[in-house]
Design a protein around this nucleic acid. Structure first.
Length: 222
DNA sequence: GGCCAGGACACCA
DNA sequence: TGGTGTCATGGC
């Protein structure tokens, strides 16, 4: 298991708070989380601008769109056929819950996660991002930048689930911490993780994951 | 013109 | 369970 606190505090001290995610509302985060899958934020902004102009990001107005109409609006974000299906299904689910974020947040994180994963187009990373940024619950987002960073720091994990199981958030870790940690990792990743040379020249290159405690039966502990 | 960006999913062995 | 191909756009 890995205690991420030393790394988190070190990055926070060096980089300062990142205040992710850039959005005006929780519904915008939900929509953005789907649109941003495997694309860049510039393309997402183009799609969000189209959607905002047509619907003001109002859920009921979006649900009134036909799928071809929605596809056309979100086309700049890529994979628009898949994303339009996912978007309609997810927004329908929110709408059935009266878009009551507080009520939905009252569920336990694991239950919420299972529910989200059952929705089309919502995988582990998107589900965890929603839990942290929309439902205000702490969990670790083991995205590509996180996996690359932990790999650079000497942890040999390869896939999402493996790293997530290894990183043990302490009970004191708040959802604000989880938001900051993810923001720090991704901001660091954008600048330093593109090649090993840049990472080796970074402030984090000398950091040691000294608190790693290996376990033979991580799966059995969960 | 090729590569990449804050993934998910179907399919196959 | 893990690896691979597919889905698509815009910026550099």
């Amino acid at each position: 298991m890995i205690d991420p606190m030393p790394l988190y505090h070190y990055m926070l001290k060096e980089m300062g708070p990142q205040h992710w995610w850039p959005a005006d509302s929780k519904m915008e985060i939900v929509i953005g989380a789907i649109l941003v899958q495997n694309t860049n934020w510039n393309n997402v902004d183009l799609a969000l601008d189209n959607l905002r102009a047509k619907t003001d990001l109002n859920v009921e107005k979006i649900l009134q769109l036909s799928q071809p109409e929605l596809e056309e609006l979100i086309r700049p974000s890529g994979f628009y056929k898949n994303k339009s299906k996912s978007l309609l299904a997810v927004l329908k689910w929110f709408n059935q819950a009266d878009c009551d974020f507080d009520k939905l947040s009252a569920q336990t994180g694991s239950h919420l996660r299972q529910t989200l994963l059952a929705l089309p187009g919502i995988g582990e990373e998107t589900a965890d991002s929603l839990i942290v940024y929309v439902f205000d619950q702490p969990t670790f987002i083991a995205d590509k930048y996180a996996r690359t960073l932990f790999s650079c720091l000497g942890d040999p994990t390869t896939n999402y689930r493996q790293l997530k199981q290894q990183v043990a958030l302490p009970a004191s870790f708040t959802y604000q911490d989880a938001q900051e940690f993810h923001g720090l990792i991704d901001e660091f990743g954008k600048v330093y993780l593109k090649n090993s040379e840049k990472f080796n020249g970074s402030f984090l290159s000398q950091f040691q994951l000294t608190t790693i405690v290996r376990s033979e039966n991580i799966d059995n502990q969960r």
